[in-house]
Structure formats: structure tokens, C-alpha cells
Amino acid sequence: MREIIVTKENAGKRIDKYLRDTFRNMPSGAMYKAFRKKDIKVNGVRVKDDYVVSQGDRLEIYIVDEILDGVPQAGSTPFARGFSVVYEDSNIMIVNKDQGIPVHPDREQSNNTLIDFILEYLEHKGEYNPNDTNSFTPCLCHRLDRNTGGLVIIAKNAESLRIMLDKIKNKEVRKFYQCLVVGKVKKQSAELRSFLIKDERKSRVFISDEPVKGASEIITKYRVLSYDMDKDISRLEVELITGKTHQIRAHLAHIGHPIVGDGKYGTNAFNRPLKAKRQMLWAYKLVFDFKDAGMLNYLKGMKFEVEPIFNINLKEQH
């Protein structure tokens, strides 16, 4: 939170103009979002963007300093927060999302989401104007769990979104993950087939080996990359053939190898000594196995890969 007092020279200005003049590097979209979320107060009272300030008014601005001052994090893409840019052109972006960042507002209605950060980044580049109601708002083509890091595709225009959604639906975008799981996985590779039942009330899913009412068939492929004998942890590469909620986490737990750090489907007695508070799961590779992608045909055959960030030191045997 930043607090400032209005001086005589600035009295009589609309508050949005006063804030733009005071914080010249702040994205205007972030400011207007703060007004919508009632995160700007004058003398302890929430105000709208047309409020006219007076001398001596005490402004409380609940916008993080990094956005308020327009200062990028050290080593990050300028004005990118919560992600780094892996690929970008005029039609799409591919970003590497940090763990702990929700992709969209969740039940807590957090403003610090991936899509918020993407829009702020594109606004700084001049590619997005939040006040232009006739323009396309860039959006995510798929989701990741809050505590799963890794690659996410963003469409910058309506046609790119249409094509990407179609390619994902038709499995022409192959998604690969790396994860650390409890125990030594005996089979070096396998294709797992089961049935997933989603329980909205409990915000979790359940896996069955037999078809049951309301269940969806799921297919998860994996191969073992390495094993740490001392910590009893296997590193897997997983390819999602179907993409259901919590599929990887629940499916691997179902076969007796929960993901390290997973508080919902994992083993707290295993996680606690490692101080693993987030699941060791990273969406690390995308392969565009397109047939005909129209205006996005230039992406056909391209592969994008990042290094997973797992804060556990392993002595891995390959």
C-alpha cells in the first residue's frame, strides 16, 4: 500500500489524472482495475475514478509497488510478473508460469493472476488497450493448476484463439510434464487408462479402474527419466492424452506414486521432511503437431521446452 497527500498544486484534478501524473510508469489498466476492485481510498473512503481531489486529501493506493512504479523484477522480461516469455509473435505468446500463480481469478478472487499479468505486459508493449471495448482481449488457450508451473499458450486475436482451441481439442498440441513422485516406479514406461470422477463439493477428483456413472475415461502416458535411491524419488515425463482436472496428480497417486509436495493427493509424512509445500509438477514441453492450422501454419512442427524448477536436490540415476 502506498499513501500520499494531495498538495495545493494538484487540487482540483480528477483522481485518475492525478495518479497517472504521479505514477507515470504504472499501466493504466492496473489503475482502473484498482478502482473497480475498490482498492483506492481517499481519507479512508473508497472512491471512483472521477473523484476530484482536494488539498490535504490522504490517498491510500492498494497496488503493489512493482506495478505502481512500473519496475520489472531483476532478470525478468520487462513488466512481466509471475511468468517469463518463452515465445511471442503477433498472434500468440507462450509463457512459463511461476508456481503459486492462479491462471484466472479463483474463489479468493485474487487480482494477481496470470491473465492479469499478461494483460499488463501487453499494455506496456502497446499491444492491448483496456479502454478499447471494441478490441480483442488476449486470453489463455488452456489452464494450469495454481501450484503447477510451466508453459501456457495465450492467443492475441480471435482467429488464433479459435485455431488453438481446435488444435488442443483435436490433440494436435502435445503437452508434456515432468514431475517427481514418491517411490521407485517399476515399469519404465506405461499408458495408464482409468476413469475419473469429479467431486465439485470437495474440490477434488477420484479415480476408478472400472467405468462408473458420471466418470470420464482418462489416459496418461509416462516414462521414467531417473531415480534417487537415497530420497526414494522418481522423476517422470508425463504426456497428457486426455486433459481432465487434476488428472496427473490423481492418476499417479492411484497407482501408488503420488507427486512429491502434493497436499491434496500426496503423502504429508513424505512431504514434510523435504519441506515440499507445492507439487513437484511442471508443464515443461509443448509440441505443435499441426495438420492444417491456417494462419498459424508457420508454427507447425515447432517444439517449446523449459527446465522444470524443483527445489529439491537429487542424486539421480538414469
Rank of each mutant, 00 (worst) to 15 (best):
V53N: 02
H124R: 09
L236F: 01
R107W: 10
T267K: 10
R278N: 07
E60L: 08
R204F: 10
K231F: 03
G243L: 00
D116Q: 13
K202I: 01
S76L: 08
N134G: 14
M93R: 01
T22N: 14
Q247C: 05
L180M: 08
I207P: 09
N157K: 09
R204G: 07
R193D: 08
I154P: 07
D50S: 06
T148M: 03
L119C: 04
P273N: 03
F35D: 03
D145S: 07
I168R: 13
K156M: 02
K171D: 10
F83K: 07
G75V: 01
V182K: 11
N91A: 12
S189E: 15
S234D: 03
K171N: 13
D209F: 14
N43M: 04
S226Q: 05
A293R: 00
L240S: 04
M295T: 06
I197N: 08
I248N: 08
V152R: 03
G294H: 01
Y51G: 12
S28D: 12
S28R: 14
V103H: 03
T137R: 11
I248V: 05
H124N: 09
K186E: 14
P138R: 11
G183L: 11
R235I: 10
D116F: 15
K275Y: 14
G294V: 00
G75M: 06
E316I: 06
Y62N: 06
L286T: 13
H254E: 12
G44K: 08
G70E: 01
K275I: 06
A250P: 00
L68K: 02
A190I: 13
Q73A: 13
V45L: 10
S28T: 14
G70V: 01
V64I: 08
K187F: 04
G256L: 09
K303S: 15
D292C: 10
V224L: 04
V152W: 03
L281S: 01
V185C: 00
R204N: 09
G82F: 00
M1K: 11
I312V: 15
D69G: 07
K202M: 15
K33R: 15
I118F: 00
K8S: 15
G266W: 02
A11F: 08
K291R: 15
G56T: 02
L19E: 02
H124V: 06
Q279L: 01
D65A: 12
G243T: 00
F290I: 01
I207H: 10
S90L: 11
